Amino acid sequence: MVSDSGDEVIVVGGGVIGLTTAVVLAERGRRVRLWTRDPVERTTSAVAGALWWPYRIEPVARARAWALRSLDVYEELAGRPGVTGVRMVEGVLGETGLDEVDGWATARLPGLRASTPAEYAGTGLWARLPLIDMSTHLPWLRERLRAAGGTVEDRTVSALPDADAAVVVNCTGLGARALVPDGSVRPVRGQLVVVTNPGIHTWLVSTAASGAMAYFFPQPGGLVLGGTAEEDAWSRTPDPAVADAIVRRCAALRPEIAGARVLEHRVGLRPARDSVRLERLRLPDGRVLVHNYGHGGGGVTVAWGCAEEAAGLAGAGR
């Protein structure tokens, strides 16, 4: 049965995309119910290393606009890092030169420059970017939603039309593969290792000649080491051999990592798609359905820009 309230919205999906979309809708005056299969602390977003950078996300022009809007928000949230989980942290984007980034980056990111040999042995960019501690940020988003009058319900959805509201927003990530259904959504498996931080305060993203990734992000709970990007891999079980290889690659960049104690292993399945699906449709009964999924590993980077566009499509103006 559809709710009698025409201003009610159900957002399906409790990761960073769903939570952020729900927050924007609620703060624009809509009555919002967030349905999530898992507690926010156990969503794919909770596993993310969560460095802001528009990386491997299509369509490029729209993704850049979403990312830049999100950057505006994260810069403001970084004024309260202990509360929001957002900090502005310096580091190096390896294998990237100034001539390889578009003008938007140099115009929008003060201090963006070529890294020095002391900072990185290869070609790299030194940048100050948002780094988000998801263990703090996701619960903060949930409480911000509640403060705006929204509710969070643990609920599994088998079909989008089952959501009993005038407007339904689909932010189910990888779940959209079966729920929509959309067979173009596929997992890209990422494995991480969290170790005690041996005194590293900057982040680094590097790609070896072999194409293997290595990155580390200093987070309050430890140094997050990565990583992998295995397409169409569904296992959520950490692979000890993969974990050992991640530590070796990171220790080759910063030798002190070799002696760090392992605290945790994490695996997440990024909800990849050839391009983000952000559009408004009509359900057979005339209700509004907004899709907002397929962000791959860029969900944190574009979350606020996508949330604001999705809210507009849902009929919630500024």
Rank of each mutant, 00 (worst) to 15 (best):
V9L: 08
V167A: 07
T84R: 08
G259K: 02
N197M: 03
V300R: 12
L112G: 13
S210L: 08
G79C: 08
M213Q: 14
Y74A: 02
L174Q: 00
A159K: 14
A61C: 08
D244E: 12
P161N: 13
R28P: 09
A233S: 11
G18E: 08
R62W: 03
S5E: 12
E41V: 02
P81V: 09
I200C: 02
E256Y: 12
R142V: 14
G149V: 00
A245N: 04
G82N: 03
T196L: 04
G49I: 00
S184C: 13
A229W: 03
A272L: 01
A48E: 02
G211S: 09
P139A: 03
A243W: 05
R108V: 09
G103F: 11
P117H: 13
M213G: 13
A310N: 06
A48F: 09
S206D: 13
V205D: 11
T20Y: 13
G91R: 07
L129E: 01
N292S: 06
A22N: 14
L223E: 06
V16L: 06
P81H: 08
A314I: 05
V32G: 05
W104K: 12
G94L: 09
A105D: 10
L281C: 14
D285V: 02
E58Q: 14
T20I: 07
D154I: 00
H265W: 14
R113H: 11
